[in-house]
Design a protein around this nucleic acid. Structure first.
Length: 214
DNA sequence: ACATTAAGTGATT
DNA sequence: AATCACTTAATGT
């Protein structure tokens, strides 16, 4: 089954106490996957949790239009945070996991990981920090989606202002705009500069003139 | 001429 | 995208 002996101890000895490493011997199972292998699909449930010994697994989500959205990669030494929940609570997976490259996994059955949760502090810590890092990553991602499209917000803001003032010329400083859009003056200056280069508007002192093709 | 405020820039996180 | 540090331009007294 295995083409070569796999030493998963090296990958995880930094994380786990010896007693737990010993338990891996009897309770877990080594599994090899080839690049492109679908490990779990949306809607599926899983009864063992894979720890990545080597290789990479791509975790993604398929949206309504059938397009794939990459969420994150799970690399050597890590495990998928979603799978912890999915497996532990025996719920349907909301993600799809595909081997990005030929990978080796250490599969821990759900009962074992449940038991280890209270038995081994190192295991609990491992699970928690895995979830923690993924969670913060997600929060950052939300941040970007929600706030990063400042250029579009700026254009809309300028149009609105123009409509209200019934004028293509706005008497605003970059600082004022930044304050209203909840951002930095420097950022506004740079975005405006970009718009000016695209012939969308003209920048004067404390004054901006919107051009027709904004 | 000098001080103050607005805007531009590069580097860093 | 935000922050910092610094420069340059514009404006007011």
């Amino acid at each position: 089954m295995l083409t070569q002996p796999v030493n998963y101890i090296d990958t995880f000895s930094d994380f786990f106490e010896p007693a737990l490493l010993a338990e891996f011997e009897t309770k877990s199972m080594i599994m090899e996957v080839k690049s492109g292998d679908v490990m779990i699909n949306m809607g599926q449930t899983i009864r063992a949790i894979p720890l990545i010994v080597s290789g990479t697994v791509k975790v993604s989500r398929i949206n309504d239009e059938g397009q794939e959205l990459l969420l994150y990669y799970v690399k050597s030494g890590e495990s998928c945070a979603m799978t912890f929940n999915c497996c532990m609570l025996a719920q349907a997976s909301v993600i799809k996991g595909v081997a990005e490259e030929d990978s080796v996994l250490l599969c821990v059955p759900q009962e074992a990981m449940d038991e280890w949760m209270t038995k081994y502090p190192s295991w609990k810590k491992y699970v928690m920090s895995n979830m923690m890092s993924r969670f913060t990553e997600m929060v950052k991602c939300i941040d970007e989606v929600a706030f990063k499209k400042l250029d579009e917000r700026l254009v809309k803001y300028l149009k609105d202002k123009s409509a209200i003032a019934k004028s293509a010329v706005l008497n605003l400083t970059h600082q004022q705009i930044g304050d209203e859009l909840g951002t930095n003056r420097v950022v506004i200056s740079r975005l405006l500069k970009k718009l000016e280069n695209d012939n969308k508007l003209l920048i004067y002192n404390k004054q901006i003139k919107l051009l027709k093709d904004l």
